[in-house]
Nucleic acid binder design. Structure first.
Lengths: 211, 211, 211, 211
DNA sequence: AATGAATGAGACTTCATTCAT
DNA sequence: AATGAATGAAGTCTCATTCAT
């Protein structure tokens, strides 16, 4: 009956299942980031959300499911952002700059998610692990594709292996989850610009005598 | 066979404290790498080493102590290698190439240590955490120092912040622990060469028209 | 049978939290008395109560908490009994007799509690120890107050220090937990009467020549 | 050969087994008093004595043996002191005063022993427990005998049961191990005098009107 | 939708004791 | 006389999960 009130259902006594679920997710997000997956107990998650274990198990089948959902949120956002980039321009140099930019801005936006994504991967089991890993691979394949494309089109040097270059570029960006702080001196846009410049043009001053 | 080499101490039936300790360390090393610190139980460590829990606690005060020792081995090796590099040459370009090279070769040499170093940092407590963090900072300060020096001496571009460049370079190298496999197509020397080239000279082909 | 008495809560198949908790307390009470706090394991407590370790830790945070609860039950009962005594009469001789009487009857009533109270005090930590110690002090202050009052009012001799007399009197009563047996020849009322007489009037036969 | 040097044997390199043994006993004495028998580990005992576990087990068969030795030292001293008292006078009033005096002075002299004697009795097993308990009974029988004798000789009142009176007197004295502090306002001689007076002559002022 | 009592496996750690040297 | 490596049992406590309501 209450279903007629358009999507935002309401339960008789003010129950708000969606809100409960969100509370739990946010609680888990903070705790997984701060103490790790193994280091966080269901008890802590529900306590911080002012809920009970029963509520938790009403919304999630297992603790791992929460982890999987956190990882999904992030990786899906990445994939969506990458799709946009690929549609916006065909120039590999532009695409590469954009990939770097998006990598860094989403680290800022999803800091907890990213930290958990990289640190707690291990705790995803079989099928869920495979699913996330596959999406992660898609992201990396995209970086690699852009580089390969740049080489083919003559923009990027041929003497570097595209896979190695990809790993280097991805590592450079991903590592930011370890040190980036929103209150730091540089914003993510500026960091992205510097990273792109370093990778595309190199640290060396062009004119300086080589060794 | 090794009996001719005059072993310092002999115990009946193979009491060999040093060997016991080493067995435990190696067992822990493998397991921490494979299943994480929290995911590894003392039981598993001793079972794999064919020893007992009592033996473990005779040699280590806590599980954390083993973790600390693993981290120490790696970071000390890093510091020693860096010292050598700094003594071998004063040219920031050479130094930077060497830092990259050492970072990658030691990831190959200490793969388990490095994985544990980056993934299980959290589980070190107060003083031990501080100790390792301080040494890790020394390493990073060294990278930063070389870059700053290169800028001052006119070898490296001035329009990049040395701290950002350092984070990028360190991330690029450190990330390798996530993907490097000894059986892969490239050795660490070659990977290091490509990383150095990318960072020093850039991906872009010099002549190609810019966007 | 007891079902007619409208039990507040009903659980399936006998979920009765209050009863579970009580079982555990009673089990611990017996075991702590018989084997001491350190000598009693959680395993023994739950086995004797036909429950599981999990159930124990659902109801109590630590083993120490059970100890604290046992001590509290006794000391609170003491304080309440003393309050009654102080309200019932103002004559220090009456009050003293009553204090002795209550000390002994409550040793009979709370034999296990008292034994644990005196033998396992050590195992209470910081704040809980302080709380119990403070209440114990209140009890002793009360004995001391009555004696001091008796001296001031001219009923009790002045040549004895009230603190020493208090210690003596309290020790005499408290010690009973070591030897009192309900099946013994004398009941607590009679023992109390004899103790009061001994302390108030002395062992000596008034007329007998002194040494 | 070294045995000719009269009882105080000396080992070649300065070994002093007797001193080692004594160190261990003293270490155990302090620790048992402070933390209880169960709360003290062999490790702590030997650490505090700057020795090793091997040394401990060279001198004592078990931890319990140390406990037994501590209890023996005290109870033997009690028995010896009581023997002296019984030989010195036949007057039950004198004897009683002396028993009280000795009880208190030996609490001062053997504070740790006494604390352990009363608190850790439980940890003595079968035969050793029986031995100590028997000696303890001898001491109590002695108190009881003196009281009974006093009643028979007409010095002590007949309306009190000698066993109850004994328990009261013994408790009064023994309890002092719980509160006596050498730095306190009264010495043991004075405390003993007051206890004897209280028990023999009573707290009440003879002339005061009775209730 | 949510509760919270209960489970049972397993975690880390401690410890008295043994024994070859 | 003394060492210290090793054992193995046991201890306290945590935790993800289940389930009747």
């Amino acid at each position: 009956m209450a279903e007629a009130t358009a999507r935002r259902r309401r339960w008789p006594d003010g129950y708000q299942p969606e809100a409960t679920r969100t509370s739990l997710m946010e609680s888990a997000l903070k705790l997984f980031q701060a103490k790790g997956f193994d280091g966080t107990s269901i008890r802590e998650i529900v306590d911080q959300a002012n809920l009970t274990k029963g509520a938790f198990y009403h919304h999630f089948a297992t603790k791992e499911e929460v982890l999987w959902e956190i990882q999904s949120v992030y990786i899906e956002a990445q994939l969506a952002a990458i799709d946009e980039i690929m549609e916006a321009s065909e120039d590999p140099r532009v695409r590469l700059r954009e990939l770097v930019r998006v990598s860094l801005t989403s680290i800022a936006k999803y800091h907890a998610h990213v930290t958990i994504f990289y640190q707690e991967r291990r705790h995803l089991n079989g099928p869920r692990f495979a699913e996330i890993a596959a999406k992660r691979d898609q992201v990396e394949q995209c970086f690699a594709g852009v580089i390969r494309d740049g080489v083919e089109k003559g923009f990027f040097r041929e003497d570097l292996d595209p896979r190695i270059a990809t790993f280097g570029l991805v590592g450079m960006c991903a590592w930011a989850y370890q040190w980036y702080r929103p209150e730091g001196a540089f914003g993510t846009e500026e960091i992205a610009r510097q990273f792109s410049t370093m990778v595309l043009d190199g640290l060396s001053v062009p004119g300086a005598d080589s060794d």
